[in-house]
């Protein structure tokens, strides 16, 4: 389904033109591998859980088509998120194909689905392009992490992080950012765990603000065209994820190209069935998560 251009969508509730991003280039293509996940974290902004199929498993055939099209558009890297990507039965084959062409990043909870298949993952270090893993370690405190992710999962994720690093892959972690936190202190609290896992003390830590559950409607300020031109420079606009990336999402048996990694719960952000079409479309900043990008520069990307 393509983005609808109703007045309500084009304008804010105050009837001002809604702010937008005109995509500039396709540096990064994300794939959503499916909302099926071995865990069921209550905060999951994808609403993922075991057996869930709001977003269906992407197949190798489907992924290949978009990888080939993205290469024509000059893509620089491929990234994968879920759910838990390693729950998707064709994921390792998809990754294998993507790594033939470009560097790849995988977001993972680094528990049983990856642990059980690590024997098939390790040979991927010999592919022509590098593979990086971003492991979720929500808090520098196993008890807090396990409260939502389930018992023992901090320990497993940390152990897998170390094994991936020793296996020759690039690693980073993703954590939750609390309002009013002292970010440096929180980051530093990971040091003993990193040492324990044998990973570098200065490991990249990606911080995520609260994104809210799919379909939720938290009250955030609306972004108008005038906000985007008065407060945000063209250089800043170019750093919005929807300016340089897209995400492939499969729903009801069909793959669509979504504006970015954060808006797959709203059909208005399905920009069509091909990357060529999607890159021509303006992305209207009407999702509550767009406000995170506007206000805080939220980004799932790690740079190339």
């Amino acid at each position: 389904m393509k983005m609808q251009r109703s007045d309500e969508w084009l304008n804010t509730s105050q009837n001002e033109p809604r702010g937008y991003i005109q995509p500039q280039k396709l540096d990064e293509l994300w794939f959503h591998t499916g909302t099926n996940c071995n865990l069921r974290c209550p905060f999951c902004f994808e609403g993922s859980k075991p057996g869930d199929n709001r977003i269906e498993f992407l197949t190798l055939k489907e992924a290949r088509g978009f990888i080939d099209e993205a290469l024509e558009l000059g893509v620089k890297k491929f990234s994968f998120t879920g759910g838990e990507p390693f729950v998707n039965p064709e994921f390792i084959q998809i990754l294998d194909y993507a790594l033939e062409h470009r560097p790849c990043l995988v977001l993972t909870n680094a528990t049983e689905p990856l642990m059980n298949q690590i024997g098939e993952v390790l040979p991927l270090r010999d592919k022509p392009n590098p593979l990086n893993f971003r492991v979720s370690l929500d808090h520098p405190d196993p008890v807090k992490h396990d409260e939502s992710r389930g018992r023992g999962n901090f320990r497993k994720a940390l152990d897998t992080l170390g094994r991936l690093h020793r296996g020759g892959f690039g690693v980073s972690i993703a954590r939750q950012m609390l309002t009013d936190e002292d970010s440096d202190t929180v980051d530093q609290a990971y040091a003993p765990y990193f040492e324990n896992a044998g990973v570098p003390a200065n490991l990249l830590i990606i911080k995520f603000p609260e994104f809210h559950l799919p379909g939720s409607l938290p009250q955030v300020a609306e972004i108008t065209e005038s906000c985007m031109t008065r407060f945000i420079s063209p250089e800043q606009r170019a750093t919005f994820m929807c300016s340089f990336s897209k995400m492939i999402v499969k729903k009801n048996g069909q793959c669509g190209v979504y504006a970015c990694t954060l808006v797959d719960d709203v059909e208005n952000y399905d920009l069509g069935n091909t990357l060529h079409d999607a890159m021509k479309q303006r992305v209207l900043l009407g999702h509550h998560r767009c406000y995170s990008c506007f206000a805080g520069g939220a980004s799932c990307s790690e740079g190339s």
């Binding site: 057996g51 869930d52 199929n53 729950v87 039965p89 049983e112 059980n116 298949q117």
Partner: peptide, 9 residues
């Protein structure tokens, strides 16, 4: 019931 899935084979 969901469709079958798994990572333990």
């Amino acid at each position: 019931a969901s469709a079958p899935f798994g990572w333990f084979r």
